[in-house]
Amino acid sequence: MTMSDQTPIALLRDLESRVRSTAVGLPEQEEATETFSGIGFRIGDFHFVSPMSEVTELLRVPNFTRLPNVKPWVLGVSNIRGRLIPIIDLNAFFNYESSTPIRSRRILVIEQNEQSDGLVVDGVEGMQYFAADSFDPTVPDLPEGLKPFVTGHFVKDKRIWSRFSMISLSDHEQFQDVAV
């Protein structure tokens, strides 16, 4: 049978067969891995990450007014865009000494149960991304006061990032008890 004797369908099938036999394989489809993203921050030499949904704002430490009869870790209150927000020194709350001057530190603003708090941390490490399946639910070696607020950790570039729950902190009885 000559080429002119073949039907158009037979010609197309023959062409497809020859193309498939010489075609380079398509790349394998990679499955998209689920990620955890959060705000990275430091308290001393310890690195933490909190879910994006738990931190509403990042700020430089604003001017604040000291308050009488409050625990030493409550630095005062600040007017931030018309809202009075308590300024809490997390290092002092956790009895952990900070070597970073207060004006060089940063604030994570959290909102829980219609209450906003400004949490002073030693530094903000920006957005952090981790493969969700790399989460380890064990609490790493941390000072005892921090452990109740840590739900596990990630490891990235040989650094341990403890997953910190702002909700647990905000709901904690000791955090709510600010009066002396």
Rank of each mutant, 00 (worst) to 15 (best):
Y129E: 11
P62E: 03
L58I: 07
L67I: 07
G82P: 07
P140F: 08
V139C: 03
S53T: 11
V120W: 05
K71N: 01
S104C: 09
N63A: 09
N113K: 15
F94G: 03
M52Q: 13
R83P: 03
P148K: 12
R159H: 14
I160E: 01
R83I: 03
V77L: 02
G152F: 13
G145H: 11
V61I: 04
N95Y: 13
G118R: 04
S104Q: 15
R159T: 13
L90Q: 00
F94T: 00
V139K: 03
R159K: 13
K71M: 09
L67N: 04
P68Q: 06
S53V: 13
D122Y: 02
D122T: 06
P137S: 07
K71F: 03
E54H: 15
L146D: 08
I87Y: 00
R106Q: 14
L142P: 02
E57R: 15
V150S: 04
V124L: 13
L58R: 03
V120S: 06
H153T: 01
E54K: 05
D157Q: 11
I110H: 00
F64Q: 02
V120F: 12
M127C: 11
S104N: 15
G126N: 14
N79V: 08
A92P: 00
R66T: 10
G123P: 12
D117A: 10
Q112M: 10
I160L: 03
G76T: 02
K156I: 09
Q128N: 15
S99N: 12
V155C: 02
P62V: 11
L58K: 03
S116M: 14
F154Q: 02
V74I: 11
N91F: 01
V109Q: 05
D136H: 11
V61P: 02
E144C: 04
E125G: 12
A92Q: 15
D141V: 06
V155N: 11
Y129F: 13
R103K: 13
E57M: 04
V109W: 04
G123K: 09
R105D: 10
N91S: 10
T151W: 11
S78L: 05
W161P: 00
G123I: 10
R66M: 08
E114C: 15
P62K: 12
R83C: 04
S104K: 14
Y96G: 01
G152Q: 14
R60M: 07
E114P: 06
D122Q: 12
I107M: 09
N69W: 13
F64Y: 10
P51F: 14
L58Y: 01
